[in-house]
Design a protein around this nucleic acid. Structure first.
Lengths: 199, 199
DNA sequence: CCAGTGAATATTCAAGATTATATTCATAAT
DNA sequence: ATTATGAATATAATCTTGAATATTCACTGG
């Protein structure tokens, strides 16, 4: 009997969940294929029917985490009562908070980040794209409400993202305290807003 | 005969120059105290009369490099004919160009950056301070010329710096091409300027 | 066939031995 | 007295090798 795509995807997801848990807690290096396999009641060999290799698991895992993050942020931003300005601020503060909290809770994640940053830059590009899309949505909304006056929403979204990168990438942890980060984030948002505003 | 401070400083500088050359070309790990010593015609042991240890040499070296960079950028920015807007743009583009070129010419420098980023965060803070000071000067000048309308120059300088960090730290090399970086830098500057402008 | 496995092999990791280098120190030269 | 050094020691990098782990493969039960 041939397994349906759904069944395969289901199993892939189970594997990814198990792997994610172990990567977060013990780090990439310290989790073995055998352990992941045991978590989902199969042999290590059989994992290779679902993934090319260990690194692939890590990559799909990271991809999934980033998507989750993006979804979370998108939801936080889409609060009905929010103005575009509030949305932009929420975007930055939620990104920042998510980054800081995740890093505090699972320091081992830096291993995955390093892996993805060195090889697999395409994933990072995808993440940037996703973030820009959210920003673009906010900008377009701001144009509608009259809060903003943005000519080229796509181009500007990537510009805004570039100026917010300090709060979107966990590369600067340790240089500033959470409070400092938050204050800086608010200040940058204020400045950006005044640049985006219809005068 | 007691050596004057000037003589000591002169020798320290010679040592730093030699060390810098080797660090740049061969990296921190692959240059030995003996080699640096030979370059300035003394024994390795004698280096310790001028520096606590090897890491100290690296730190003072980095400090020097950063100061040089800051001075270079400050000079580029202070061109007499320049408006504040032009100065801000020059600031960013010069920072970016310096970073990219240096990294291309001396890839081994990443070793020093890593060292300084991990231990010696105070150096990084100093660098940030120096950059902010230059920005503050530009902002104050913009207030004078009427181009800008910045209430708190100090606070805003650090905000502007935060939004320009992508172009000021060599952490994102490889993610974007030089051309992409430059375009993004220009776009961010445009956006910032419109936020800083007197309306 | 297809999902799955245990055993075989390739690769990576880690502990210990070895070597190179950083750092100290007793002493020499000036 | 101060600058400097060579030799001694401490520390860190490198290499080696056995063990752990990733990956492949021939095979098994459905």
């Amino acid at each position: 009997m041939n397994a349906s795509h759904d069944e395969i995807d289901d199993l892939k997801m189970k594997i990814l969940d198990a792997a994610k848990e172990r990567f977060q807690v013990y780090g990439y290096g310290k989790t073995t294929m055998a352990e992941i396999a045991k978590d989902v009641n199969m042999s290590a060999a059989n994992l290779y029917r679902y993934f090319q290799n260990k690194q692939d698991i890590a990559v799909e895992c990271s991809d999934l985490c980033m998507s989750d993050r993006s979804n979370k942020i998108r939801e936080a931003v889409r609060q009905p009562g929010f103005s575009a300005v509030e949305r932009l601020r929420t975007f930055v503060l939620t990104s920042l908070k998510t980054n800081l909290e995740e890093f505090e809770k699972y320091p081992k994640i830096s291993e995955l980040i390093e892996l993805v940053s060195k090889e697999h830059k395409e994933l990072v590009k995808d993440k940037v794209q996703a973030q820009c899309a959210i920003i673009a949505e906010i900008l377009a909304y701001g144009n509608e409400t009259g809060e903003f006056d943005v000519k080229d929403v796509i181009k500007t979204s990537s510009t805004v993202h570039a100026s917010l990168i300090l709060f979107d990438f966990p590369l600067f942890d340790g240089f500033f305290s959470h409070a400092e980060f938050e204050m800086m984030a608010n200040n940058v948002v204020d400045l950006l807003i005044s640049g985006l505003r219809r005068n």
